[in-house]
Amino acid sequence: MTIASDDSKRLVDAIGHAVANKKQLSIVGQSTKSRYAHSSSGDALQTRDHVGIIEYQPDELTISVRAGTPIREVADILAANDQTLACDPPRFMGGGTIGGAVACGLSGPGRPWYGNVRDAVLGVEMVNGLGEQLRFGGKVMKNVAGFDVSRLLVGSLGVFGLILSVNLRVQPKPQIERTLVTDMEWDKAWRAMCGAIAKPSAVTATCYCSGSLYLRLSGNRASVAEASSILPSGLETANDVWEQVRDHTHAFFNNEGQLRRSWYGRGKKAQLSEDEHVLVEWAGAQLWSYEQASTRVALDANTDSEPFDRSVANPPIESKYVKRLRRAFDPHRLLNSDVRL
């Protein structure tokens, strides 16, 4: 366990200094998501020494964490109290900080059931591009005072400001977690996955890859047993598959080429042929593919898609407002200035 340390003064001063000298800064955590969120020009501003749990009240279902704290350490502390984060951000290369998880906003395979990082954020403490230390949101579930800046920061890749600390919702850890797998053709698998959204069940993650459908069941003994009937032919397999999908250590992610994410609306089925090399999670709503292997994946109007390295532009109107938003937080464009939203 890392020793807790409050490095906020240095971080705030560094931004203040950058503002005074109009110098650009590149915010860096553990750099585990550099394939997704590229580093920017300017001096590196390291959050790794700003670590530790500020406050953890298991019976309030909230935790307050400094941005540089490794996700793994937060997960371990929660697990010791039979709790987990109320979201499941990836830990590429086994690492990653809480601040990075918020800044990138990526979600693991439990997304449709547990929500994303944005859903779990209750409040933040941040430094904007004027060097001002600001707090938004809070430590309580219900809070509608002021614009919801804390959740706006999720996925903003550090361009609105440096995240100093985050207050997050946590949830009880399910008593039992069980994974079932079975071979199934895509159409049937897709219907089974949609059923896991439309009917109450203990399903908390789905994955379809190479003709196999995986389901994660979570809950108490009885509800998991009840849900097992969804896949009558399913065999029990190791729960590791979910971490592998989340952290991209699954064999699917060993391919060469440009990795692409495509998002399907709920209830909208991807048209896949049998030999297509894809990995589908979120009950069919997120599809991973490699450019050279799956250029045939048909994208229709209900689909949004981008390379995982985000080498595409936003819709033009949104980008007009996004540009202004950046100016509203960072008028001198000092923070992660090259990062495109």
Binding site: L152, W282, N302
Partner: peptide
């Protein structure tokens, strides 16, 4: 009507 979309 999906969970994620390109852009902030």
């Amino acid at each position: 009507n999906g969970y994620e979309h390109a852009g902030v």
